[in-house]
Amino acid sequence: MGLSERQQQLLDEWLPSATIVRDHSWGIIGTCVLELEHAGAHYIAKAADAEDHHLARELRAHRNWLRPWTTIGRAAELIHADDDAKLLLTRYLPGELVEGTPYEWMPETYHQAGELLAALHEQSAVPDDTYEDRENERIRRYLRMPHRIAPDVVEQVRTTIAHWPTPPALVVPTHGDWQPRNWLIDHGVVRVIDFGRADLRPAYTDLARLAAQQFQRDPALEPALLAGYGSDPREPEAWQRTRLREAVSTAVWAYQVGEEPFEQQGHRMLAAALADNSTG
C-alpha cells in the first residue's frame, strides 16, 4: 500500500522534504514501512490502512512498555504519532535482520534476546480472570474462517478446547511475535523491532514462535534464551493450551494471506500439539 493523503501530509509536516531511502514493507498486510532521511538523520515511518488493528498496539507499546529497551538503544524511540491517521515515526535503529544470517543460530543471540524479554516482562504483572476464555473464543473464531484444516482435526480441536480449564492468568507486557525476523543485530548487539502484536498476555506466550521454529532446529538455543531470561516461565498445562492456539492461528492466518510455507508450518504445529495433548 501507499500513504494516504493525510499520512503524507503529516510526514511532510514532521520531516519537510525528507527523501525515501528504502521501502521495508512486507507487502502481505496493509502496512507501509518507509526508511526516510531528513537533515542527515534516518527515521522509520510506519503507516497502516483502514483495516489495520496492529498500529494501535504498536503505539501502546511505544508509549507504555518500551522504555527498558529505548533507554539502552535496543528499540527505536518514538518521535511523532497520529492515532487517527494510523501513522507513527521513530528514529532509525541500526542493524540487519537476524533472520537468515549466522546470528540466527548463535546461542549468544538468544541469551541477549532472553535478557531483553525479561526486562519487558518484569515491568508489571496483573491477574486477568478472562484471558483463557477470550483466547478460547478467539480460536473458535479462527476455526469459523476459511482454512484448510481437516474437518476431523477441527472437531478434535473443538473437543479439546471444551475440556480445558479457564483459570485466572497473570499477564505482562509481551512482544507477541518474538523471533529472529523481529530482531536486529548490530556489531553483535541484539535490538528489537515491530510491536504490532504487543499486548498484555502471560509471559510464556512470547516463547511460542521460537519453540515451533528455531528451538526445533537447534535445541541449544532454548537453554541459551532461558539463561538470559533467568527462568522458564512455562507451566505445562498452560503451555500446552498456548501451543494449540498458536498452531490454529498460524494455519488459518497463513492460508488467508497466501503464505503456504507458513501455513504448512501451522499444520505441523497443530499435529504436534494435538499429539502431545492426547498423551499429556
Rank of each mutant, 00 (worst) to 15 (best):
M1Y: 01
Q7A: 05
Q8K: 14
L10I: 07
L11M: 13
E13P: 11
L15C: 15
A18H: 15
A18G: 10
I20V: 15
W26E: 13
W26L: 13
I29K: 10
I29E: 14
I29Q: 13
T31Y: 12
C32I: 04
C32T: 15
A39C: 04
G40V: 03
A41N: 01
Y43T: 09
A45T: 08
K46I: 03
E51P: 04
H53D: 15
H54W: 10
L55W: 01
L55Q: 02
L59C: 00
R60Q: 13
A61W: 00
T70D: 03
A75G: 10
E77W: 00
H80T: 03
A81P: 05
D83H: 01
D84K: 13
A85W: 14
L88D: 00
L89A: 06
T90G: 02
R91H: 11
R91Q: 10
R91K: 13
R91N: 09
P94L: 12
L97R: 12
V98S: 11
G100I: 11
Y103L: 14
W105N: 15
M106W: 14
P107H: 13
T109Y: 14
Y110Q: 05
H111N: 10
G114N: 01
L116D: 07
L116S: 08
L117D: 05
L120P: 04
S124D: 08
D129F: 09
T130I: 01
N136S: 05
N136H: 07
I139C: 03
I139E: 01
R141E: 15
Y142E: 10
L143Q: 02
P146R: 08
Q156W: 12
V157T: 14
R158K: 15
R158H: 15
I161S: 08
I161R: 09
H163L: 14
A169D: 02
P173M: 00
G176D: 02
I185T: 07
I185Y: 00
V190K: 00
R191S: 09
V192F: 05
R197H: 12
A208S: 06
R209Q: 10
Q214A: 05
F215C: 05
Q216C: 06
R217I: 02
R217F: 07
E222S: 06
A224M: 11
L225S: 01
Y229W: 08
P236Y: 07
P236K: 04
E237V: 03
R241I: 01
L244N: 06
L244G: 06
A251R: 07
A254F: 07
Y255C: 10
P261Q: 10
P261W: 10
F262C: 04
L270H: 09
A272N: 12
A272E: 12
L274H: 04
T279V: 14
